[in-house]
Computed example of a mutant assay.
Amino acid sequence: MTQGGDWQQDLLRELANGSPDSAPPPSRPDASDAIPGAPVRTGAAADAEPGAESLPAAPLVPRPSHDPRVAAAPESVPTVDPRLAIALGRPQHGDSVARRTSRSLRKLTASAGGDVAEQTRLAQEVQQPVSTGRVIAVTSIRGGVGKSTVSALLGRTFNHYRHDPVLALEADTALGTLPVRMGAESVRWSCGDLARILTPAMQLTDVTGYLVPVADGGWLLPAGQGRVGAPLDVRTYRTVTLALRRYFAVTVVDCESLPGEVARTAMDTAHARVVVAPMTAEGVNGTRQVLDWLAQLPHSALATTVVALSAASPDTTLDAKTAAAHLREPGVPVVLLPYDPHLAQGGPIHTAMLGQATRTAAVRLAAEAMRHAVRMR
Rank of each mutant, 00 (worst) to 15 (best):
D172H: 06
H342S: 11
V374A: 12
K107A: 13
L178G: 10
A117Q: 13
P200T: 01
V335L: 12
I349H: 06
D172F: 03
S27V: 07
P82W: 03
A352H: 14
A303H: 13
N285K: 12
A87K: 10
V138F: 01
R288L: 15
A112E: 13
V180Q: 07
C191F: 09
Y161P: 00
R63P: 00
E14D: 10
A308Q: 04
G217T: 08
V40W: 10
L153R: 05
T287S: 10
A215F: 13
R245N: 10
A46D: 07
A31G: 14
D233W: 09
L11C: 10
A323C: 08
V145Q: 05
A110R: 12
S310D: 05
Y339A: 02
Q92G: 02
K107F: 01
G4T: 15
P278A: 11
R264V: 15
V135N: 04
S19L: 06
M1R: 10
S22P: 00
P341H: 13
D254H: 06
D67R: 11
Y247P: 06
R121I: 00
P298L: 02
V228Q: 13
A201N: 09
A295M: 03
E14W: 09
T208A: 15
Y237P: 08
V252I: 06
G283H: 05
V61A: 15
A361R: 11
T139M: 02
R377C: 00
P74H: 02
G4L: 14
E49G: 07
A201Y: 06
R90C: 00
R156H: 07
H342N: 10
Q8L: 15
A117I: 09
A48R: 12
L198Q: 02
T360N: 14
V135R: 09
P314G: 01
L169M: 14
P62H: 02
A243K: 08
R142D: 04
L242V: 14
R69I: 00
S65G: 01
N159F: 00
G5F: 05
Y210S: 15
L337K: 09
P50K: 08
K321F: 06
L337G: 01
R90I: 08
G155Q: 05
L365K: 07
V145C: 04
V262A: 11
S310F: 03
Q345P: 05
V275Y: 11
A325R: 13
G217S: 06
R359W: 02
A46S: 13
L232R: 05
K107V: 03
G89R: 07
Q9F: 12
F158P: 06
H93A: 11
E261Y: 03
L154H: 02
C255T: 13
L198T: 05
D315E: 08
P330T: 03
A123N: 10
S54A: 14
D10M: 09
D268Y: 12
A223H: 05
V150D: 04
L15H: 07
L294Q: 08
Q356T: 14
E49M: 13
C191M: 15
T109P: 01
P348S: 05
S313A: 07
A85V: 13
E170K: 07
P314V: 02
P25W: 00
E329H: 12
A312N: 12
A46W: 06
L12W: 11
D292Y: 08
V262K: 08
A73K: 01
P129A: 04
A312P: 00
A44K: 11
R196P: 00
Y161D: 01
V180I: 14
T79L: 05
G155Y: 01
V145I: 12
L153W: 04
A301S: 13
R371K: 13
T251Y: 03
R377Q: 08
